[in-house]
């Protein structure tokens, strides 16, 4: 337990010192602010671009702001998350720093779980800051309107991010170079979405965590509908982590 915490502390410092955590934070902050801004400014920009031409554009609302936010997080940010975190284990095993640590009294499971915990910390802090900024901007730019189930919606996207981290960590333990690990993570992530889109599975699949956010905010999806996806999201993340630990234990270094 002690070595687990020690190694987690080292991981967090490394995220800071090697700019990986900083990159995730800055990207999330940027999207947190630009999403509501873009929603607000799009009609103005279109007006400028098509000067003289009358275009009918509906006045944007807070719905557009959050729609932008969840779209950006669900796509761009997840890509960044995969790119950053799919290098976590493989960079250490291929270089040889992991071998130095694992011949001390650090167990292989602790190694993996430390990586996960620190990745999750970076993600949680960055995402919370980003969501906070997004809410502030949205409240200021679109004073009217009251989003339904905003926090549940935000929580779902957070959990979606955690699952993405677990996916990246698994491929990072399986492969022995970064490019393969990143490509593998994209494939596995795509596979989970693909399976989620099979009609009979859709209602239970974790992809709803990153897809039903706007439905929750506009009120067209009841919170109860997310109960099972949240459960499967947690379950799949746990299974991915378990698989990473077990595979790493059997891996020759």
């Amino acid at each position: 337990m002690n070595s687990f915490l020690v190694f987690t502390a080292k991981e967090l410092r490394e995220q800071l010192k090697t700019f990986k955590g900083v990159v995730v934070l800055v990207v999330l902050l940027i999207f947190g602010m630009t999403s509501p801004l873009l929603a607000k400014l799009t009609p103005e920009i279109l007006k400028l671009a098509g000067a003289g031409v009358k275009i009918q554009i509906p006045t944007p609302t807070y719905i557009d702001a959050y729609a932008q936010f969840f779209k950006n997080i669900g796509q761009m940010v997840m890509i960044v998350v995969i790119l950053v975190f799919s290098g976590g284990v493989v960079s250490e095993t291929s270089k040889g720093t992991a071998q130095m640590m694992l011949t001390k009294r650090l167990s292989r499971s602790s190694f993996i779980l430390s990586k996960f915990l620190s990745d999750a910390c970076v993600w949680t802090i960055s995402y919370a800051a980003s969501a906070g900024l997004c809410i502030c901007y949205t409240v200021y730019l679109f004073p009217t309107g009251n989003p339904a189930h905003l926090f549940l919606s935000l929580f779902c996207m957070w959990l979606f991010g955690i699952m993405t981290i677990a996916v990246s960590l698994l491929t990072s333990t399986v492969f022995n170079n970064y490019a393969l690990s990143a490509v593998g993570a994209f494939c596995l992530w795509g596979l989970i979405s693909l399976i989620s889109s099979i009609p009979k599975i859709t209602d239970y699949a974790p992809s709803a965590l990153g897809g039903d956010n706007m439905g929750l905010i506009s009120g067209s999806i009841a919170p109860a509908a997310l109960r099972v996806p949240i459960l499967t999201g947690v379950l799949i993340s746990a299974l991915l982590l378990l698989a990473a630990c077990l595979l790493f234990r059997r891996r020759e270094l």
């Binding site: 990159v23 800055v26 902050l29 940027i30 602010m33 630009t34 801004l37 607000k40 400014l41 103005e44 920009i45 007006k47 400028l48 901007y137 730019l141």
Partner: peptide
């Protein structure tokens, strides 16, 4: 353009972060 100008204070932190990253 004036409509855009009033949002400059909001754009500044974004620009700071992007330029800072670069």
């Amino acid at each position: 353009m004036d409509a855009l100008r009033q949002y400059f204070p909001f754009l500044i932190p974004v620009a700071v972060l992007e330029v800072g990253l670069m």
